[in-house]
């Protein structure tokens, strides 16, 4: 089964999370997440996730790219990741995961990225094996990506 990225639940969780809010303070950027063949855009405006959704627009610009195979993301999102998938830098240096673009901006807010990963893991764990994803502080529970 293909990996699902619960975009709306993640967006809502991030915007309601005090740790993410603090870590992402003053961060305005557009991140592209490549999950296998799927692409997602995550737009941050001053620490708020304004948009997180799948895109098929090949011309959509981004400042930062985080990319890996579905297997890479499945390992990153595991409740207890195997060695070196515990964070993005570990995956980047050891497993061929892509981190590119505005790395200075990314690393300046690396706490925020780590917290986002925590939230994604938590939501991924919550919905593991569940057909209908629960909403985590969100509005409609919409999940993008392939199921």
């Amino acid at each position: 089964m293909a990996l699902t990225i619960w975009t709306e639940a993640i967006r809502a969780a991030a915007n309601g999370d005090r740790l993410f809010g603090h870590a992402a303070r003053r961060w305005t950027s557009t991140l592209q997440l490549k999950v296998g063949d799927q692409r997602y855009i995550l737009e941050l405006l001053d620490g708020q996730v304004r948009r997180f959704e799948a895109t098929e627009d090949l011309f959509e610009a981004s400042d930062i790219t985080l990319g890996g195979t579905e297997s890479d993301w499945a390992q990153l999102l595991a409740e207890v990741p195997v060695p070196f998938y515990q964070d993005f830098i570990g995956a980047w240096f050891n497993h061929g995961f892509e981190m590119s673009g505005d790395l200075r901006g990314l690393f300046a807010h690396y706490w925020a990225l780590l917290r986002l990963l925590d939230l994604m893991r938590s939501i991924n764990g919550d919905v593991d094996g569940v057909v209908n994803a629960p909403v985590v502080g969100g509005t409609d529970g919409a999940a993008a990506g392939v199921a």
Binding site: A23, V80, P81, Q86, D87, F88, I89, G90, R104, G105, F107, A108, Y110, W111, L114
Partner: peptide, 18 residues
């Protein structure tokens, strides 16, 4: 452009997740 936050976050990342 980067504060000590980056160094701290990076070190958090090389701890075991458990």
């Amino acid at each position: 452009d980067m504060s000590n936050d980056f160094r701290a976050a990076q070190m958090y990342g090389i701890c075991a997740p458990t």
